[in-house]
């Protein structure tokens, strides 16, 4: 399976999805002009992965900021992960960033995936 590697930019997060090495991470800022378009390859990759997933998938969110539009897509990503067994979401937030912590908590309530909250 090919590695999905999207370099981060000012408005877009860095995304690495690497099945072989077990690395799944979305980090940085997410406020793309068109968030649906931006997250499309991610959702497609996950769809493909769900058929051949690793026994455990540790999915890392380490976001500084996401806009309202991105939040819808992040929810879509999390929804895709719901169908993949052995997934754990590692939700990172800066120790001062309660909004991001709350956002994570909201997400954790919206999907049936175990969340682990960590600060950085």
């Amino acid at each position: 399976m090919e590695i999905l590697n999207i370099e981060g930019a000012e408005d877009t997060p860095k995304i690495i999805l690497d099945r072989t090495n077990g690395i799944f991470e979305i980090s940085g800022r997410s406020l793309p002009e068109d968030s649906a378009e931006f997250y499309k390859p991610v959702l497609e990759w996950l769809k493909s992965y769900s058929g051949q997933s690793n026994s455990a998938t540790d999915f890392v969110f380490k976001l500084e900021y996401f806009n309202t539009a991105s939040s819808k897509l992040i929810l879509d990503v999390l929804s895709s992960l719901e169908s993949i067994g052995g997934t754990t979401v590692h939700w990172y937030h800066h120790e001062d960033d309660e909004d991001m912590q709350e956002a994570g908590q909201e997400f954790s309530e919206l999907v049936e995936i175990p969340f682990e909250f960590r600060t950085y």
Partner: peptide
């Protein structure tokens, strides 16, 4: 709206923050 607390800036380029 969230635009006020979500503004990046400061010395470390961090969000303004709700706090």
């Amino acid at each position: 709206s969230d635009g006020y607390p979500d503004q990046f800036g400061g010395a470390d380029g961090r969000k303004f923050g709700s706090k």
